[in-house]
Design a binder for these strands. Structure first.
Length: 305
DNA sequence: AACCATCTCAACCGCCTTGGC
DNA sequence: CGCCAAGGCGGTTGAGATGGT
């Protein structure tokens, strides 16, 4: 991990006597010890009490984003990425709200992930990151692959996905090229190609996911998708189990209820009952572009070469 | 080896909300 | 009601790490 760093306009102490910039080990220790004795909150008082020449805000941020014991380190798992994508599609840049559904992850981390990975991908595709177009592309292209990878990991290992799925381990190789659609998922999560394009360039399908082989832009009805219930059988037991382990699902009846969000709606299963409306939007460029960028940008999308 | 470009992410900024008075 | 302080949140920055040439 990168060391503590910070833009330092005026390194060291300011005129006010307050320190800024990277935290020292001593400061971290003082803060941690003080909170372990006194608890969190009243940050300005806490800063004084701990003998820190920092603002209360700075202490709070340091604690919540870095020092808190339950903070999870390391790459985001496919499950976590999937959740972020879907929750962001539902809530937008409500980072703290999204983070609340990812145990051990901070809003800052998720925000950074979105900016460095997702927004960059959108730029590559020349799509506005928060646009419906990009959301459609994510849902129909990125999410299915995350689900596929979760399933693969579950099938291939008795250990947890969380343990085994470092993104760097799932890179495509010459023997693991972009997968034909029919092989993308286990049967229960297989995508349905859409067809029957009408003369008006619209179509409708019923499919757990929509993966175009004829490279059309896809749109869908977010509300319908987001209201679909619970972990469906489409998701597969292994993935559900891992989501339960994450605290994302509850075990009873494979129901995933998270303050209105359910994992199935996170592109993991019950798209199947929602009719999709798809429209042509200028031909092949989106998915052609995705093929170019998604498969070639290492570590950017989870299934990259 | 040196240089440059790009990426990562900790930390700050400023605005908004909340709660106490 | 208004005022103020504290906390919370999203946006932004930039130092250091990393990769490419």
């Amino acid at each position: 991990m990168l060391g503590a760093r910070k833009r330092v306009c005026n390194p060291g102490e300011e005129e006010s006597g307050l320190r800024r910039g990277p935290w020292t080990l001593e400061e971290d220790t003082s803060l941690t010890h003080y909170i372990s004795r006194q608890g969190e909150g009243r940050w300005n008082m806490l800063a004084k009490g701990a003998g820190l020449k920092r603002t209360g805000k700075s202490c709070r941020l340091r604690w919540l984003n870095y020092l808190k014991p339950d903070i999870k380190r390391g790459n985001l798992t496919p499950q976590e990425q999937l959740l972020i994508l879907e929750l962001h599609s539902k809530w937008g840049n409500r980072w703290s709200k999204i983070a609340a559904h990812l145990p051990g992850r901070t809003d800052n981390e998720i925000k950074n992930y979105w900016r460095t990975k997702v927004q960059k991908e959108a730029r590559h595709l020349n799509i506005e990151a928060n646009s419906k177009r990009f959301l459609d592309a994510v849902r129909s292209y990125w999410m299915p692959r995350l689900v596929q990878k979760m399933e693969q990991a579950s099938y291939s290992s008795s250990s947890t996905i969380l343990d085994s799925l470092d993104n760097r381990e799932v890179r495509s190789t010459p023997s693991n090229p972009p997968v034909p659609n029919s092989l993308l998922c286990p049967p229960e999560t297989r995508f349905t190609h859409y067809s029957n394009l009408g003369s008006d360039n619209s179509c409708s399908v019923t499919s757990p996911y929509l993966l175009s082989t004829n490279s059309n832009t896809i749109s869908q009805q977010p509300d319908e998708i987001l209201e679909t219930p619970s972990c469906s059988p489409l998701l597969g037991d292994s993935v559900c189990n891992n989501l339960v382990r994450m605290g994302t699902c509850n075990e009873e009846g494979s129901s995933c209820d998270m303050d209105g969000f359910d994992v199935a709606s996170a592109g993991m299963g019950t798209y199947g009952n929602s009719p999709f409306e798809c429209q042509m939007a200028g031909g092949d460029w989106v998915f052609d572009s995705m093929e170019d960028t998604l498969w070639n940008m290492d570590d950017m999308w989870p299934f990259r070469a």
